[in-house]
Design a protein around this nucleic acid. Structure first.
Lengths: 328, 328
DNA sequence: CTGAAAGCGCTTACAG
DNA sequence: CTGAAAGCGCTTACAG
């Protein structure tokens, strides 16, 4: 059997309470006693059973991160920094890919109730009844999960507007929008708003394809988009994957980029692998979003008051998928 | 306070043991009693506290997945399927990005001892003392973590050889190899072996850059590689990111692909987003690797005997980074 | 500063 | 089939 706090207590000649106190900081324990206990721990190679301690303290030390799929650059990068930040505060991260599986989201909600996890970060999500979310420490990204659930987002409207204005400035006359529409109310919807506004302002035609799709279907969406609007000379792609698929598909069709078609993307997460941006894109502050959202969650878990909406600034990066700046 | 098994027992007019039996399958419980208990559970919205049950049963229901970084297509895809498979068996996945943080790996080992997690999958890893790994349910990918630790791999040598022969067939005379060397003994090393063998066989020059690097440094490695061997007409890139960075860097330098330089990659994980492969590459069976490794781990956790080495077949995909097949 | 004891919420032989 | 009881390994008032 594994050695327990009892064995340590016996060996050190103290009560189990004292061992526990040493384990939890050792404040208010006599130096000598403490040393004896620590020696015993050392000798017995004692490792406290976390499960017992958690049961007692009624906390799990776990937070769940729900993403549609992890194998997508945006979510992967987010997961990376969420784990990094959580680790700093002593939390571990449970990874859940919930796309196609609404039950998984419900499960997490259950797990929170069961004290299996302390809280959760929903990046995207299905629609849940308000009362299911009640009393669960939850935070989200881009979407208001419920009216009391804090979330982090980026300046979707302004950034998109800015990106589209850039295409206009680069001479585009027929600008398309290709994206995947969120299932529920989301800040991401503002990208489409911005598109419609900019087109209207400049009197340009609307060439849009923005349906609710699953990750993995970008290829079909792009094909249909190019079929419906074969003559676009500029495209705003909502999401890095969409942009990448668009780029590849265009290349395969023999469309020259940026000569025949310029591309601007929202979210340029894969840039990190290169020193210079390849896609011209709106860069979301993914790392900061991750760190902020984790801290929000921990504050909620600890019962603190937190800000409901945090908006972070994006960056505009000029890459090779738009025409060279002459005026620069 | 949360409602407990006791409340349910009282409400149903039975003992707590009976409630527990109903919760755990309800076998050998009278139908009527069972119904009464279930009604009580329903009425009280009772959710069992997992922590207590785990303490009692001495199992956590958690497995840890250690990758250097999640935000890399290979690891992200692996993480996705690991979670999917683990979920089928009732396990949740703890995600840990251990690059740069050897302590994180040690922590997991500790957590296994503490019964915080039931087992772990190490994809890559630092060197650990054999006795640290002792008695821990562990499995890994591509690397033998220790002599009793099962692992899953792909046919690195054959696949690389095959890919290189393809470049030779496509007329390449100066074939380069750019990769990142694993820290420890690994099946991945066989890719370099295959390269050296093929070059020797065909009397071609060696143009190799294969150092131990961190994920994120691919850009520098590629730049140096192209500087050292500016006249390569074919490159084998070990790893999808390396290949992608190579492609982008070449494009930026004005090198035409595949006319001036053909590229073949090991691991074409991002293919999934397109219907047609973009990179010509060796496709690792990531999904199968993930599912197999999870099942191996669960078998180990349950104390079964498992196969030490599982080798899976790769696929060779022809994309746009090598010259058109004439003979096809 | 420290020990003895109660208890976290469940599970599981043990009797019956 | 089922109840009472012991116990999983820890933590935390409560006395002293």
């Amino acid at each position: 059997m594994a050695t327990t706090i009892k064995d340590v207590a016996k060996k050190a000649g103290v009560g189990v309470g004292t061992v526990s106190r040493v384990l939890n900081g050792g404040k208010s324990v006599n130096r000598e006693t403490k040393q004896r206990v620590m020696d015993a721990i050392e000798e017995l190679h004692f490792v406290p059973n976390q499960m017992a301690s958690r049961l007692r303290k009624d906390e799990s030390g776990l937070i769940a991160l729900l993403v549609p799929v992890v194998n997508h650059p945006f979510f992967a990068k987010l997961a990376y920094f969420v784990e990094d930040e959580a680790d700093k505060f002593g939390y571990s991260v449970l990874l859940v890919s919930s796309q196609k599986r609404m039950e998984k989201e419900k499960n997490i909600l259950q797990q929170i109730r069961r004290r299996e996890v302390d809280g959760a970060i929903f990046v995207t999500h299905y629609d849940h009844a308000e009362n299911e979310l009640k009393d669960c420490p939850l935070v989200s990204i881009d979407r208001p999960l419920g009216k009391d659930i804090p979330y982090v987002t980026s300046d979707n409207y302004d950034a998109t507007k800015n990106a589209l204005e850039y295409l206009v400035k680069k001479g585009c006359k027929r600008i398309g929008y290709v994206g995947s529409k969120p299932l529920v109310d989301s800040e991401v919807l503002k990208r489409e708003d911005a598109y419609l506004d900019v087109m209207k302002e400049h009197g340009l035609p609307i060439c849009i394809k923005n349906d609710v799709i699953l990750h993995g279907d970008e290829s079909n969406v792009v094909s249909e988009f190019l079929q419906d609007y074969p003559d676009v000379d500029g495209v705003f792609a909502s999401g890095h994957t969409m942009a990448q698929v668009l780029y590849e598909t265009a290349i395969q069709k023999g469309i020259r980029i940026p000569e025949q078609m310029q591309i601007v993307a929202y979210d340029g997460s894969f840039q990190q692998w290169s020193n210079n941006p390849f896609l011209t894109c709106v860069e979301q502050p993914i790392e900061e979003m991750a760190r902020v959202v984790v801290r929000l969650l921990i504050d909620k878990i600890e019962g603190k008051e937190v800000q409901l909406r945090t908006m972070l600034k994006t960056n505009f990066l000029i890459g090779l998928t738009t025409k060279e700046s002459k005026e620069n």
